[in-house]
Write a protein that binds this DNA or RNA. Structure first.
Lengths: 134, 134
DNA sequence: GGAGATTGCTTGATATGCATAGCATGCTTG
DNA sequence: CAAGCATGCTATGCATATCAAGCAATCTCC
């Protein structure tokens, strides 16, 4: 247990972070995404979303993005703070499938590095009682 | 025009009409509904919604109303013109060989750090070439 | 008839989604 | 270096969701 991550700030993946990482994973530029949406979503606006300048992008926007990227619309809705049908609303996020890496096109190399990094993270956390990071 | 929404004709019922008729059915006043939502939705705003002055009430508002009235949230979303998340999840199981991370049960904290690290990894070896070292 | 409450609605103000245009930096090549 | 383009981001402005306050019609009950 332990895991008092909530108390220390920056832990949870934001909608912006998630979308940005997905876009990079797909190797697309902001303008390419704009193109892909038939100019329905401007690159400028996308930038704001990725930097969390927009608090709640509309469902239609999120849907378009989920189509482009081939990711789950419901999850985007959730991350944006919208209530999703058939999902129980709980203030405390039980982890579950927040940002599963299945959505990323990881190369074997990347996967290896991530695993290694994860081990590093965990070892560090177990041994030293961690404090301010970075 | 506060006629019953039971028009025999096939004109489609608007969100406002629907909500108004439901509220009347429940025999509640605008202010009672406002109360029932813990004042999250003002009676003034409700009035505008019922008269279709508002084109797209936010999902959260619609959800609250669906709770109060005990009606289907998804339907309200649809009537409001929002795309409703369908669970018709396509066979997007392209991950195949790299589902490794699915086996780890990452805390939100770890997931965030991994994502950040992945972005870091990719940001440096952008698209081959270039010996740029920022 | 008038005070007082109740109910639906309008209005003015504010917040925020979202677009167009433009900026800053980086990279490439003459 | 300058020119050019690509990429991410910012500045500005408009549209609209949402609220607080107030108004008009109604229904009491004296």
């Amino acid at each position: 247990m332990a895991t008092d991550a909530k108390e220390r700030g920056e832990e949870k993946v934001t909608l912006g972070q998630y979308l940005a990482s997905i876009r990079q994973d797909r190797r697309m530029t902001l303008r390419e995404v704009e193109e892909a949406t038939n100019r329905e979503i401007s690159n400028a606006y996308l930038s704001q979303i990725e930097n969390d300048k927009i608090q709640q992008p509309s469902p239609n926007v999120l849907h378009k993005l989920s189509e482009i990227f081939g990711i789950d619309y419901g999850r985007l809705m959730e991350m944006a703070g919208h209530v999703v049908p058939s999902k129980r609303r709980a203030p405390s996020e039980r982890h579950g499938r927040i940002a599963t890496f299945a959505n990323y096109h990881l190369t074997p190399d990347e996967e290896a590095e991530l695993l290694e990094y994860l081990q590093f993270l965990r070892s560090r956390r177990k041994t030293s009682s961690a404090k301010t990071r970075r």
